[in-house]
Amino acid sequence: MGLKEKYHEYHRPILGMASVIGLILLWELTLTYLIPVDPFFFTKPSLIGTAFREQLFGERLWRDLAISSRAFIWGFSLSVIVGIPLGAVMGWRRRVEYTLDPLLTALYASPLVALAPLLIIFFGVGLLGKAVLVFLLAVFPFIFNTSAGVKSADPLLINVVRSFGGKELDLYLKVILPGTFPYIVAGTRLAIGRGLVGIIVGEFYAASEGIGFAIQNYGDTYRLPDMFVGIIVLSAIAVALTELLRKAELMVAPWRAGEEIR
């Protein structure tokens, strides 16, 4: 009966893997035997696999990834540097929140990607234009999550620190920052998704290198297997980053597990 118990314990990953393998087999077999594939419009796993091996040993994929991640890291770092302090002040000072909240909420809720053509024309098709776009999209989750975290600081704890003669700095380091940390980690996960949108749109719109450009370029030249490789690589990176942050979230705030909305 050991086998059956094992199955019950791991039934989710087993079924998940089975369904992925099943889909790949079905896709391959259908296109090989039932409907002959028109390589201009569709492709099959074996061709994607070949393209994947070629790209893995080639140079272009790595160069594209390096270029995209450089723009991403610049924009993302800037949004951390700006977003977290701004959010902290907004959470701590009521009047600052009153002043900034309507403007920032309006900007957060609106599709700022619509500004992409202007930003690209203004800042150029290279690193700067993409980094600015990433910053513009990724900064808001940091602002609002940090602010929510600061506001969630327990007044009782604040009073305790004050009663024992703690200084303003102690307040920040011992109460506010630790309480805010889980919120910032959750914000980081949202910001990564938005930042990736920025990179992709920036590179679709006007670029001569980068992973987004590669995907679009392969699409324009009907090289579907190569295009799927780009999409798969990008998905793998996105899933890895998101799952990593989800794990980090569970580590810093186990009590919030399961209550969040993706």
Partner: peptide, 13 residues
């Protein structure tokens, strides 16, 4: 997890 916009070139095709 992946921005769905990556599918746009494929959809256009």
């Amino acid at each position: 997890a992946t921005p769905r916009l990556v599918w746009l070139p494929l959809f256009i095709l």
